[in-house]
Design a protein around this nucleic acid. Structure first.
Lengths: 341, 341
DNA sequence: GCTGGTTGGGAAACCGTTTTCTCGTCGTGA
DNA sequence: TCACGACGAGAAAACGGTTTCCCAACCAGC
């Protein structure tokens, strides 16, 4: 390892291609070609360059490469709604898929603030990112990013309202079908549905699908209606009481998320109703701190958020290389059966 | 807005400083000086350049700027132990402090894998990041990053084992003092401490501080020992039972985290013990999904994780400008009083 | 021995900015 | 009227690579 820097070298000690070329006794151009495999050259010349690279610990300056190629090998990851329980796995999945190559992820958190979104967006454009992933928190569609014609964008979790954009979302219908089929196939027929606020697409659509899936088995919700409320344990407890008062023969709860399901399970236990012997409970999201801490642990629908992130990243890579591929990609869910059903 | 690109312009439509200069009728150098405020020039010349910038929507190419300046206006954020409940707020705090300027954050998740850490580290060095923040998940010290002499590094949450590095950590002693003082000043004297596994620094040290703080009030733990276990609700429930069997006159539980505290609160309620009338419960971390969902909602110590991230970022900025500032910075905690005490 | 093709490697332009240096011009004071 | 500053702006050299030419040398074939 060379310790003293060559004359004219920058003080930070990093070797430049010039240094490599000098040490190998070739020109910069030749050194570059040796490194990048291109060009015809004698094997021993290439080897001399490689040896010099090794000796100097040379690593190419990415700023120079990017300046020349116009590519930054970077993508922006914008979370529009704060970084939360939902965007994290998406983010990890994306980071995983991208990091495998030489692409890095620039993190931008807008906290739902459009000023901040503008700020970050401009920053990303200034940095000439190769693409952008927009990760939402909820499944409600969101307006597309303005002014990004020259850069591919993929929307994850929250689809874009513009159908000509590329979006990757969860398969709510499939998830609901998994849950309902599971309950029906284990003999439950009086199924209640307790979920979040009706103005959330996730609550609204899962409820609709639940009714449709029940109808496919010639069933209807045990209380003949959907119990919209909040995404909280407290609501789960209240709703469980209400349901059992209205329809005491209810033998299963399908819940819009795991917090509600845990609340339901708690209320049942405190009423002396055995889970799953008397009543089954199925949650949604497979949020492990909720699902596993519940008594009993919850059967729940896993939405494969990391997979959504991964697919979004792969779609973005595809779009970067091959141009836009508009459409909505849905990622299937997975039923995780535990002791509550 | 000019739509057609000038002859020789790149097809991506972005204007270069050359285009601006041409439109303003000056040389590139002059245009640059006009933009950056430097140099002496006639106000009207500067204005002509500014007008051209405006008309073309010019934004400087950061690759070129970085190549010239050697700065990337980017910092790496490595999470060494997966991105989880603890690193997220740190990450957000850091992103917030950095994003306010023109500095962006490159996200690197190593998932506790040292191969991955090496990979990301090399990537960051190749990108010539201006600095690196290493965000741990636990408070246990970690070995410093190897081979980063030329780049400032700040360790957040998990301090570096090397005291000449810069670390920003939570003030465990202060947090424990807040909790114990609160309990003592509200008349509790028979206080039990239930916490996580002894091989976690967080459990070990908080326990030590708890004993010391109790001693300052001439008290000792109601069970005369520390209840080490797991960071789970189930352990909290089991431990609460054990404590009340051993020391039935216990009038308060100080818990190592909010999950344990919630488990304790559940066990107490199910035994018919009134919280906080008979027994007070105090948690740690202020993890809102736990603390608020608990019955009753938990009094708990907030470790100000976002503040740790923010301070780490500010320290990093300082180190980038002014060189290393070794030492451990502790960030004070905050007691959040709710209905469990 | 001359021609023509192949091969290995160098010179130089280029990517888009910043910054230094230089130079012409104008105004002012002697 | 001349000389000297100050001022304004342009030319050019970086920054560190990549890539496109282009040329010298070498070989085979006639």
């Amino acid at each position: 390892m060379l310790v003293t820097s060559a004359p004219g070298s920058p003080s930070d000690g990093r070797a430049r291609l010039t240094d490599v070329a000098a040490l190998a006794g070739v020109s910069v151009g030749t050194a570059s070609k040796a490194l990048n495999g291109g060009g015809r050259m004698r094997p021993e010349t290439r080897q001399r360059v490689m040896d010099a690279v090794e000796e100097l610990g040379f690593r190419p300056n990415q700023h120079a490469q990017s300046l020349h190629s116009g590519r930054s090998w970077t993508v922006g990851l914008m979370t529009t709604d704060g970084i939360g329980r939902f965007s994290i796995p998406v983010l990890l999945g994306a980071e995983d898929a991208l990091g495998a190559g030489k692409i890095s992820v620039l993190l931008c958190d807008t906290r739902g603030d459009s000023i901040r979104e503008q700020h970050h967006l401009r920053n990303l454009m200034d940095r000439r990112v190769d693409g952008i992933i927009v990760a939402g928190r909820r499944t409600d569609p969101r307006p597309p990013l303005p002014g990004v014609e020259s850069v591919p964008v993929v929307y994850a979790l929250s689809p874009s309202t513009d159908p000509s954009d590329t979006s990757v979302v969860t398969d709510d219908r499939g998830g609901v079908r998994l849950a309902i089929d599971h309950l029906v196939s284990t003999g439950r027929t009086r199924i209640a549905h307790v979920t979040g606020p009706e103005h959330h697409a996730a609550a609204r659509e899962r409820a609709r699908y639940a009714v449709e899936e029940l109808a496919d088995s010639s069933l209807e919700p045990s209380t003949r209606r959907i119990h919209f409320g909040e995404w909280s344990e407290a609501w789960g407890r209240r709703a469980a009481d209400a349901v059992l008062r209205t329809a005491p023969d209810t033998d299963a709860f399908f819940c819009g998320n795991d917090q509600i399901a845990r609340g339901v399970a708690d209320a049942l236990r405190e009423r002396g109703v055995a889970v799953p012997a008397d009543v089954a409970v199925v949650g949604y999201d497979n949020w492990d701190t909720m699902a596993l801490a519940s008594r009993p642990p919850l059967t729940t629908v896993d939405t494969n958020l990391a997979e959504i992130g991964r697919i979004a990243a792969l779609e973005l890579l595809r779009a970067i290389d091959a141009g836009p591929g508009p459409g909505v990609h849905t990622v299937p869910c997975r039923l995780v059966v535990r002791e509550s059903s």
